[in-house]
Amino acid sequence: MHNFMESIAIPTAALVFSLLIFSGFVAFSGNNVLEVLAAIYQGAFGSWFSWQNTLVRAAPLMLTALCTALPARSGLIIIGGEGAMVVGGLCATLTGISLNGLPPFFVISSMACSGVLSGGAWIAAVGALKHYRNVNETISSLLLNYIAIAILNFLILGLLRDPATLNKPSSFPIGDANMLGTIGTTSIHAGLIFGLVVCGLLWFVIRRTTFGFSIDMIGGNIRAAQISGLAVGKLIIITCFLGGAAAGLAGMIEIAAVHGRANTSLNAGYGYAGILVAFIARYNPLAIIPVAILLGGIRASSGLLQRSFDLPDATTLVLQGIIFIVILASGAVYGRLNWFKPKGDSP
């Protein structure tokens, strides 16, 4: 129970502390702190319109967060969500373009499959490099991000480039018929449902299945997992695949629900923000949902800040960065707060 209290109290305190630092930053820029904070709230959760904006941004965050959270449960720190999302989106676009004209349901399903498989394979490669060649997974996944973005640029500036896109080089469109619709009369696209369902599903897998149990064993102590005869390498690669698949799905959704074609909007930073979401949520797939909504809200408010206070677009990125550092630092506090502990150090 005290663990649970701790995992709520510490991130909350860290968020409050980050807001304090951010307030200093805002005051330094010559703005009224309370007004800016109120505007962030307004832009994130103040109206139904801002809620829709927030949820649209939260959907990919939920999925990219899983790309860090799942492998982390098996002890791997992977920051390749950005690359997996780009690869997933790119492959989904390729599928969409080549199948254009076939029944939309079939096209969309194929796009989802190709996004999931390619994103999964992308991160599974990280897991395989780690297991078979002992390559540091954090570094290899980071480098794979750059490779993914380079491949994206190579294709949208060359082979796939639609000559009609002048300002922002993009691929050919996947076709309006193949776009994912919105939920009811809102502007929220169906990607949110994917995000919620996948988070819920993976929570179930982690908590209720023998697979999840094995993963927690490996993440908790790999030697204990080996001594129990678990196929550690295989399980790590599968976990990486699942994480990459979630990020790949995020890429597919961004293409099929928002942009309709592949361009640099695919690497808008959802993958990196997902790492932050996963850290705050302590790698718990269910906790990812509210945290993604919170971070999505902060991102959604950036437009309003720009319009009302003439603050640059990057302001919310500053806040996000501050939160990131404070959350990382707060990790050192876990297990040290005496009032959450029934007893002290074992003598």
Binding site: F213, D216, M217, G220, N221, R223, A224, I227
Partner: peptide
């Protein structure tokens, strides 16, 4: 503790490592 247990998992879970599946 180093070789055969996961310190953060419960006693019950640790007792189940051989047969949980």
């Amino acid at each position: 503790l180093r070789n055969a247990c996961v310190a953060s998992m419960s006693v019950a879970d640790n007792l189940a490592f051989r047969r949980f599946d």
